[in-house]
Amino acid sequence: MKKWPIIIICFAWGIGLNAQELFPNTEPASTVPKGVFGVRLLSETYNESGAVRNQFSARLMYGLTKNLTLWAQPMLSNHHGESFPADLFNHGHSSGISFTRPIQYGNKYKYSFAGIHLYAKYRLLNFDQDDQHLRIAFYGEYAPFSNQAHDEAEPHLQGDTGGIGAGTIITYLKSRLALSFTGGYILPQKFTDLKSNNRYEFSYSNAFNYSLSIGYLLYPKTYKSYHQPNYNLYLEFIGKAFDDAEIMWFDIPVEVRSPAQMANRYLDVYIGIQRIVNSNNRLELSIGVPVVGKSYRHFYPLLNIGWQRYLYGKN
């Protein structure tokens, strides 16, 4: 663990190359240009005890003003079914206590519409200089509902739970080295299982979300034209901290004993490479592994693939 600060410092300063802030898994404080649409397609994949889990997202972005970016992102996944598993908990007949079982992983689920993620980012401050800039933005996010019975305590507004969230993004860029910090808070909606005979009500925990992203430009060292491919390397530390979930069965509290439904804090790291083609098409690949603790929302390693393009219109 103690090696990580050293690695970060070496990454940031020792290599001394060029950086970018077009992070694959987090948002910088910069915004989409005014009046421009953007399309971003995302894929997240991991192997859950033999079952390959995928989530596909299609993000439509728009720069409403020079400081305000909006997006809507529908998502499709096979993370969960529409109802909680029938064996979600045990009931001790002698004690009369109901408690959750360890989650049975590797169940097969069909792909289904998981929900939609709405996001607004407002760039509040902007200190631009020739070779550096510091930008600060606030964001708010809203997932009106979740269509899947997510059975872990961790809230995740991009696909697994409904709810709202808000936070701050601070992005600093010096020469071509970029650092970005995000801190936010999530208030998830509870999920009531109305489609099974077990009337479960699952209240996910509120959560702090945090991330530190670092990026630099590997190539080119000197720009010659828009047609030169750009290669950027990224290191993103992403995590959350949250409390126990609260589960009710026919209005009776169920004691939470499964680790996946209990309080947790963790930090993952994503190592990513990005290729930018013709100065507009972004292609990126990143792999996520645990650094501190682990998330029960997904298994490791995660393989994330992204593609993005701005639609400037004809001129």
Partner: peptide, 21 residues
């Protein structure tokens, strides 16, 4: 025009497209 904040070809491309309008 000298422009601050341009640190990638994608950013430069965005400025060009905005001016072209």
């Amino acid at each position: 025009i000298g422009i601050n904040g341009l640190h990638c070809s994608a950013c430069t491309f965005s400025v060009e497209r905005s001016l072209k309008k």
